[in-house]
């Protein structure tokens, strides 16, 4: 990414940070769902060609709901919580029985709040480990093709490099049938700060 070299050691460190952060986020999702068990993949940290990022979640044309949050403060992180439409509907109707899913203001508001809680617990864990001040900005929600959502975020964040660092994990609830992905894009400045703090060159 840019002039900074990202080697395997650095990716491993990011993976470990993501692991703890996402673990925290999944715990808060489980709490919201009446302590339901949530399965979570071990997060991956990798360098991905910018061109391939919109294709990552089962094709760029897949209709999804996405909750997008940026952190400001000491480091800029972009966090995206993505769910296929049916999972979004399952999540909303579990939390607010009788709601109209993704198609009214209430549904969107529920989804926004879930995204907010998930990402905030992620940021809390990361902040605790690194001592970085991470302030979540208000979440934004879109329901659209996954490629359109991801590429819009890449444009808003001016990701002009040909390769981007991507941390991702998949999670799944069994009973309420909710599947989702958490994607994190740290920007070049954030990576530099994190590695410097941890004494990694």
């Amino acid at each position: 990414m840019g002039e900074q070299r990202i080697d395997k050691t650095k990716l491993d460190v990011l993976k470990e940070l993501a692991n703890i952060g996402v673990g925290n986020a999944v715990t808060s999702l489980s709490t919201m769902l009446n302590e339901e068990k949530i399965n979570m993949d071990v997060p991956s940290a990798r360098l991905v060609l910018l061109q391939d990022v919109p294709e990552l979640l089962g094709g760029a044309e897949l209709p999804v709901a996405g909750v997008y949050i940026e952190s400001s403060g000491d480091a800029d992180l972009t966090i995206l919580f993505v769910l296929p439409l049916d999972s979004g509907v399952n999540l909303i109707s579990t939390l607010v029985p009788g709601s109209n899913g993704l198609f009214d203001e209430m549904g969107i508001s529920v989804l926004t709040e879930v995204g907010n809680i998930l990402t905030t617990s992620y940021l809390n864990a990361l902040s605790f480990m690194t001592n970085l001040l991470l302030i979540p900005n208000p979440p934004e929600v879109a329901v659209d093709m996954s490629g359109a959502i991801i590429s819009t975020i890449m444009a808003e964040k001016y990701m002009v490099e040909d390769e981007v660092v991507l941390l991702s994990t998949a999670l799944k609830s069994m009973k309420t049938r909710i599947e989702g992905h958490i994607l994190i894009f740290p920007d070049a400045g954030a990576l530099k700060k994190i590695f410097t703090l941890l004494g990694i060159r």
Binding site: P54, G59, A60, E61, D144, M145, S146, G147, A148, I149, I150, S151, T152, A155, E156
Partner: peptide, 10 residues
Amino acid sequence: ILVTVGLGSC
């Protein structure tokens, strides 16, 4: 046919 998928702000 030339196809491009998922134009958001692009």
